[in-house]
Simulated assay, not measured.
Amino acid sequence: MKTAILIPCYNESKTIKKVVCDFKKVMPHADIYVYDNNSTDGTDKIAEENGAIVRYEFKQGKGNVVRSMFRDIDADCYIMVDGDDTYPAESAVEFERLVLEKNADMVIGDRLSSTYFEENDRPFHNIGNKMVRWLINLFFKSELKDIMTGMRAFSYDFVKSFPIVSKEFEIETEMSVFALMNNFSIEEIPIDYRDRVEGSESKLNTYRDGYKVLRMIYTLVRDKRPFFFFTTASLILLFIAAVYFVPIYLRYRYYGYVLKIPTLIVVSTVVMVAAVTFFTGVVLHVIKKQNNAQLENHLTLIRLNKKINNSYFRFL
């Protein structure tokens, strides 16, 4: 059984040596991959000198890096961790066990139930993490404790079936929702979190990246729960139409004729748009169910191919 440690990096020269060495010590059997994302501080050289397999992704953004890692590497267990030395390598042993022995498809390192709020002195990051967690749990009917953690483990099935859309830091949110909506097995374990060492700077911009994450949540609700999204939009339109229609109707009952014909025309148009919106949700819901069925078939083929390959290598 092969385990791969995946470390996406952008200018992490202050910490990458310790991260690589810690994982080599804790998991000597694992292959450690450092994917350098246009670093200018020698991160790649430091990683290579300390025994990591260094590869490059020249399209900027964490989502682009993760896409390359998932496409390039074949393993039975994937453990992804940031290169900023904020996550303990010791936790990776339990992550690996849950994937290989308990058949978990995604293991989430839960910082928020542990030391995150004590270690992190950026209040808007704390608020943002709580808000994203609340929104995801609300819209996707889950009870996840940490949505945006940078330490996770994945099964082969998850990695090879996850169609990555995100280009930057929205990737963690997209991963969580994909697992929730496609019935993948999710485990969460609390992990200690420590703040960055002095001289190491976060690449996450609170406002810019926070906006991108919220936009991603909006997109995921629309795409992954189309019936809910478009039915809600339809009901809002019907409510607005009713607010303007009721006074017209009451005056019609009293006077015997319509006083505001232009308003009535607009109300009728809004009702028609609401009907079209509702049936759009119905159609997209059916398409989504078909896509889910195709994903199940895809997962079956992935497992079949994996068994065939394993049998072939045993024969050799």
Rank of each mutant, 00 (worst) to 15 (best):
G128T: 08
G210R: 09
E168C: 14
D82S: 08
R222C: 08
S155E: 05
G109M: 06
A293D: 00
Y254I: 13
E201Y: 15
G199I: 09
I236K: 09
L238G: 08
Y116A: 02
Y56A: 11
I32Q: 06
I265C: 10
Q294T: 06
I236T: 12
D76H: 02
K167G: 15
M175T: 08
S113D: 13
N126C: 11
V258G: 09
L135I: 14
I171C: 01
G42T: 02
V159L: 08
R194Q: 12
I236R: 08
K62A: 07
D105Q: 03
D84K: 06
D74N: 13
Y252F: 15
R152E: 00
L295W: 03
N297S: 01
R97C: 02
N310F: 04
S113G: 12
Y33V: 04
N37C: 07
Y207D: 13
V286I: 13
N305L: 09
K145H: 11
M80F: 08
V99T: 05
P190C: 09
L180N: 04
R303S: 13
I302V: 04
K45W: 07
M27H: 01
T232D: 14
E49R: 10
V246S: 06
V258S: 13
N38M: 09
I73S: 05
M69Q: 01
T115W: 03
F239D: 13
K18A: 14
E172S: 14
I186G: 04
P28S: 09
L284E: 11
T173K: 06
N291P: 06
P247D: 07
R215T: 11
K145W: 05
C77K: 01
G128W: 04
L100K: 14
F23S: 07
W134M: 14
A274D: 12
Y33L: 00
E170K: 15
K145A: 10
I108D: 01
